[in-house]
């Protein structure tokens, strides 16, 4: 059984924000809501690394665990989604989430046709409405997976740093990259860990 995962390869991420605008584009995410962000550590100094972060679709999702109205559910392949009709926008899931993924529109704005409800990355899988329907799009954004496509952020990543899909396949792809890099001593951190001559 496939398990949908995101993986961001920090060696390849160049913080170009293609993933962020790809998400905005396909889901019509309004100004002020960021389902995905690029986070940079050590900005401007050696060791600078960036990764792209959104909802990670946890297997044992803390957001679902704390939700007082039980609006979260998980698809058979591990995508964590929620029902905005049920959501009360309390922000408890924001406390629980280890990635800062849940977003809340300001009370004055109507984001995604609803006011004040939590919004987050859907893995481009929409929400609890008929897949591909107008109702689903307006409330949750695109449903690409129902069309056999993967999340736009990863599909449009400039350097193919961000991967999305079945975790087993991702692991294979990533392992191959790591293996290729491992042959070269200039891999980040290598010299420090194992010495320059290895």
């Amino acid at each position: 059984m496939a398990k949908m995962k995101f993986l961001c390869d920090a060696e390849r991420c160049i913080e170009c924000n293609g993933c962020v605008t790809a998400c905005k584009n396909v889901n019509e995410v309004p100004w002020g809501i960021n389902r995905r962000r690029v986070v940079t550590l050590n900005d401007g100094v050696p060791g600078e690394k960036s990764i792209s972060v959104a909802c990670m679709h946890c297997t044992d999702a803390p957001c679902a665990a704390v939700c007082p109205v039980d609006c979260f559910y998980t698809t058979a392949d591990g995508v964590v989604l929620h029902d905005k009709d049920l959501c009360i926008g309390c922000g408890y899931c924001f406390y629980a989430c280890p990635f800062g993924a849940p977003q809340y529109p300001s009370p004055q704005e109507r984001a995604f046709a609803v006011r004040g409800k939590m919004d987050k990355c859907t893995f481009c899988a929409g929400g609890p409405e008929e897949p591909g329907s107008q109702a689903e799009f307006e409330k949750y954004g695109a449903n690409r997976v129902a069309e056999g496509k993967l999340p736009a952020c990863a599909e449009m990543c400039a350097t193919k740093a961000l991967l999305a899909g079945d975790g087993d396949v991702l692991a294979d792809i990533y392992r191959k990259r790591v293996l290729r890099r491992a042959g070269r001593p200039q891999t980040w951190g290598w010299e420090k860990a194992y010495g320059a001559d290895v």
Partner: peptide, 28 residues
Amino acid sequence: AGVYKGQTDPLVEMSADPAYQERLRERL
């Protein structure tokens, strides 16, 4: 997690279909 109380998402059932999963694997 409690028991989901919201509207049923047809995608939950769809996503259990091996053909659906294969399609996404090929896409990846």
